[in-house]
């Protein structure tokens, strides 16, 4: 009997059901899916719609993880979009300049690998730089990344002169648009990234330190954790994730540009907080973020099918966040009365 209860608890915790907040998210998600299925009986649950949703989630999803890891550590990374665009532009530049059209064989594949690695290295480097400014100069994360965001945005525009760089080889386009077993490639990349980051956060000393740092920097320092080291790593990780998002972004659009995804910056914060991440650090899990991303995507796709403008979606996203915050507040107040 005892064994059974502990098994149930294990399953609950695996599903993220241990946190009441996640239960709310699941209920809201189910309600939204139910609603759209009722309103759009023939369209919502069609493979085409599910597939298009699966194509759209990863980009915002990976950027949101990039934001989330810094929020967990008590910081913020306002430069994620700029970083992703910088990496995307660098990849696009190498892909378009050094691969002759119609070339085949090992050469182009090597060059594509180099392009991707260069992009990832670039974004990681930018993240490292953010971490360095925060850890060694003592600048607050919001100001440091506001500065680098502006700087890199500027650099992106200067580098591209405002133009679009487009036309990539097929393998690259496959990363953004291909299907494997009926599931879009970007979704694999997202699932893989989310899984890895989740392991990193929950199962490594580094991850534990991130949460501790997010709650109390000084006490973490007094426990013998090298704060600077952790901050450098967390912003580098955030940067690296931006690079991965960039790869998906440019391969999906078959182009790179300075202003892609610019409206996503605030949405990533919204998604993270909706997913239960404490904006001041210390608490939050990947599973909550994934649920929140699903909610956002279901709203977006459902409204899209209904022919509503994408802007109504954005308004509803904001509304849902406020609603969840309201529920949390209500629960806390009721909880106090009960105890």
């Amino acid at each position: 009997m005892l064994k059974l209860t502990s098994d149930i608890q294990r399953i609950r915790s695996l599903l993220g059901l241990k946190d009441e907040a996640n239960v709310y998210l699941i209920v809201i998600l189910a309600a939204l899916i139910g609603l759209f299925t009722l309103v759009l009986p023939d369209q919502f649950f069609r493979a085409a719609n599910l597939q298009s949703m699966a194509f759209q989630v990863p980009e915002l999803g990976i950027l949101s993880i990039a934001m989330m890891v810094t929020l967990l550590s008590g910081g913020i990374n306002l430069a994620i979009i700029a970083t992703a665009n910088m990496a995307g532009i660098l990849m696009a530049y190498i892909l378009t300049q050094f691969i002759p059209e119609g070339a085949t064989g090992a050469g182009p594949i090597l060059m594509m690998t180099i392009a991707i690695l260069a992009g990832l290295a670039m974004s990681t480097l930018i993240g490292f730089l953010n971490g360095w400014i925060i850890a060694y100069l003592g600048v607050s994360p919001i100001l440091a990344t506001l500065g680098t965001m502006t700087l890199i945005q500027g650099a992106n525009v200067v580098l591209t002169k405002g133009y679009v760089i487009s036309g990539f080889p097929d393998p690259i386009r496959f990363i953004g648009n291909g299907l494997v077993l009926g599931i879009p490639m970007p979704l694999y990349v997202f699932a893989f990234s989310a899984f890895l980051v989740s392991i990193l956060l929950r199962r490594t000393p580094f991850g534990v330190a991130v949460y501790m740092l997010g709650s109390n920097e000084k006490a973490t320092l007094f426990s013998g954790v090298s704060i600077r080291n952790i901050i450098l790593k967390i912003y580098s990780l955030s940067g690296l994730l931006c690079g991965v998002a960039a790869l998906i972004m440019i391969s999906r659009f078959n182009s790179a540009k300075a202003g892609y995804a610019s409206s996503y910056l605030l949405v990533t914060i919204l998604a993270a907080v909706l997913g239960g991440v404490d904006p001041f650090g210390g608490f939050g899990k990947i599973i909550g973020l994934v649920l929140s991303l699903l909610i956002l995507q279901v709203i977006s796709s459902g409204l899209n099918l209904l022919g509503m403008s994408a802007h109504l979606t954005i308004a509803l996203w904001g509304g849902i966040l406020i609603f969840i915050l309201f529920l949390n507040q209500l629960r806390q107040r009721l909880g106090h009365v009960k105890v």
């Binding site: 534990v208 330190a209 709650s215 109390n216 000084k218 973490t220 007094f222 013998g224 954790v225 210390g282």
Partner: peptide, 25 residues
């Protein structure tokens, strides 16, 4: 440290996490 609240412990985090923090490796 003398100042348990701000230096000695990470008050919002679990007891277990606090105890294991120094020896996770």
């Amino acid at each position: 440290p003398e100042d348990r609240l701000t230096l000695g412990l990470i008050m919002e985090q679990p007891v277990g996490g606090n105890i294991a923090l120094t020896v996770l490796k």
